[in-house]
Design a protein around this nucleic acid. Structure first.
Length: 122
RNA sequence: AAAGCAGGUCGUCUUAUCGCUUUGUUCAAAACAAAGAGGAAAGUCCGGACACCAAAGAGUAGCAUAGCGGAUAACAUCCGUCGUCACGUUUAAAUGUGAAAGGACCAGUGCAACAGAAAGAAUGUACAGUGAGGCUGUAGUGAAAUCAGGUAAACUCUAUGCGGUGCAAUGCUAAAUAGGUUGGAGUGCUGUUUUUCAGAUAAGAGUUACUCGCUCAAUUCCAAUGGGUAAGCAGCUAAAGUUACAGGGUAACCUGUAACGCAGAUAAAUGAUAAGAGUUCUGAAACUUUCAGAAUACAGAAUCCGGCUUACAGACCUGCUUUUUUU
RNA sequence: UGACCCAUAGUGUAAUGGUAGCACUCCGGUUUUUGGUACCGUCAGUCAAGGUUCGAAUCCUUGUGGGUCAA
């Protein structure tokens, strides 16, 4: 399958994000935390995902952008793991970076695989 | 040649694979093509453009600026120039560099710790000058000691300028109900016996801090209009535009011609991985090349421009100063 | 994104441009068999840099950190 991550696949609606933080459940693989919720949304993709980095931990916009780009990249490369096993239900995801130091691409990719495996075991 | 200071310019590149945003082509899915961060995009310290507010008016208050001349859409910015101060050179005259704070204490008010006889109605002590009164000088404290004193980054005065709010401004799109807004009619207050007609007192609320001024009005019915609900679209990028050349001007800058058409996201695109190259530093071999290691900055558009300020690996250019070497 | 505010010992708060105070805390001592209470004493600060001034917590400029409001 294609490793794309387009506008329609991103989590953007403020209402959905509000629901996600109010009722969603979480999994963690430090320094990345996943908040997920099963819900109906308009997109024809099965999963809408977003990423978030706290301004408290990274004051500079350059650092925040860099980490968000890395998180999007590792999700894009590894999301096929979910699509292979999950066919019916629709979910929304939010990946939050809770660490205080920047990590390399290789480390984040490993953590992302751990997170997805944890999610699929549920 | 090296070091230091000041100013200016630039501020990594190539290939492969996988992706993102916008635009264009194709009926569509998708594919292909083109374009895609900065000198500070930052701080938000000034100045504008643009939009809305007729409850936007007038005055006061308030705020800002401050030699002179010019540039500009405008400015607290920039350029030129005079003065002052600091530092350097010099016996001196003079000269070089740097500085946002450079109107007025002959309008008024205030302030000056400690020290000192005395700090703003001055005039004490000692010594010297003179015959004496008195006057002058010196000593002493202090940043400042009598003179139209100092101080306005003290209040203040003078001159000039400033309406307010900011793109989360503002406009548009969407079914029904309630509410909102606008218009009309009736009731109600005053004048009148009644209808017609005419009027809006007192008191209150609102507005830019205050004053003047201005605006509003209780309730029922009918009609029209309209769009909050974290939504979408417009505003949104062609602009006081960029580059080159020529001319004018000491300069800031201006004028003309030609070419270019140069990000537009919105939980927020401009990326990731791998390989290589470049630059600098260090070490080793070697004697001007090779090998190894390290570093490769500050930082990410959010309505748009002109400045200022702050951050910045490294490279280059210009000027000045010092040291050394050669002639 | 835009518009604003604040900063004084560890904490809370004062200070006309003229010696930076006060209270609590901490630490030491006295009292007590010991602890507490009470009493006495010490330490500790103007967010940073530059400027104006004879002299700056205070006035001016720039930065740093923290906070508030607007859909």
């Amino acid at each position: 399958m294609q490793s794309t991550f387009k506008k329609e696949e991103k989590l953007k609606k403020k209402k959905l994000i509000g629901q996600l933080f109010a009722r969603g459940r979480s999994l963690s693989a430090f320094p990345v935390k996943l908040i997920y919720l099963q819900t109906d949304h308009d997109s024809h993709y099965k999963i809408q995902a977003g990423v978030s980095v706290s301004k408290r931990n990274f004051k500079k916009a350059v650092d925040r952008n860099r980490i968000k780009r890395l998180l999007r990249e590792v999700y894009r490369k590894n999301k096929y793991l979910i699509y292979e096993f999950e066919h019916t239900k629709k979910h929304i995801f939010m990946f939050i970076y809770v660490g205080k130091k920047e990590e390399t691409y290789a480390v984040l990719e490993e953590k992302m695989k751990q997170l997805i495996n944890k999610f699929l075991q549920l």
